[in-house]
């Protein structure tokens, strides 16, 4: 589903050059739930951003669903992300000015959908994460766990084949973290969604199919 070949990422400033990722080769199968672990600053998030086409590698190639996106324009990339990918962030990144339902509908705004369809799909996604009774709330009226569930609903509303989660349980206590993890596992199992999750938490990582460890930008496991 996702194939990374010889991925390298270099950050340059005037004086120094930092190698954030060093020849990463990774094949992620369709339907796989993969976790990426490693100490802070080892390049986990950079790798996830590259997989999510939010950042471009300095070297190497990436194919998603057998499509090479290297030559895509801004517009084509946006379309591709919208169709194939869903994102979950550690700090949720909900739009506080919008109600839960509007937040969840967001990815559908960039597709050809009617307001009615958007509403139906968003309600369905919120039902999946158990928040259908909170659609009129604003994000600031929800707990951390609830917010992350809204973020998951937003990530799955467009029915993407891949979900990229950057420390989704990082800001939550273990009970809420487990809830979130259960939802992700459920999605992977029942809908066959491919999930790549960056985490610090060994316990969460063990629940996934495969674990990749990074250290100083290189793959060690």
């Amino acid at each position: 589903m996702i194939r990374l070949q010889n991925i390298e990422k270099v950050y340059r400033t005037d004086t120094i050059q930092t190698l954030a990722l060093n020849s990463i080769n990774l094949d992620i199968e369709k339907g796989e739930f993969l976790s990426i672990m490693g100490p802070s600053g080892c390049g986990k998030s950079t790798l996830l951003n590259i997989m999510g086409l939010l950042d471009a590698p300095s070297k190497g190639s990436i194919t998603i669903d057998s499509q090479d996106t290297a030559s895509y324009s801004d517009k084509q990339l946006a379309r591709f992300r919208n169709k194939k990918l869903g994102f979950i962030f550690q700090s949720y990144h909900l739009i506080n000015d919008l109600q839960v339902l509007d937040n969840v509908e967001l990815p559908l705004l960039y597709r050809d959908t009617t307001a009615k369809e958007r509403r139906a799909l968003a309600t369905e996604a919120l039902e999946k994460v158990g928040l259908s009774n909170r659609i009129k709330h604003f994000p600031t009226q929800l707990s951390g766990g609830q917010r992350q569930r809204v973020a998951i609903a937003r990530a799955i509303v467009g029915k993407p084949e891949i979900i990229l989660a950057d420390e989704p349980t990082g800001n939550l206590d273990s009970a809420m973290g487990n809830e979130i993890m259960d939802i992700l596992l459920q999605l992977n199992r029942t809908d066959g969604t491919t999930i790549v999750m960056v985490t610090h938490d060994q316990y969460m990582a063990q629940k996934t199919h495969r674990l990749v460890r990074l250290f100083d930008g290189s793959q060690v496991q």
């Binding site: 379309r79 992300r81 467009g158």
Partner: peptide, 16 residues
């Protein structure tokens, strides 16, 4: 900026 990032991640092009 967070909103802009999210919108972009979920498929908004610069033009949109």
């Amino acid at each position: 900026s967070s909103e802009i990032g999210v919108r972009k991640a979920f498929g908004a092009s610069s033009r949109t």
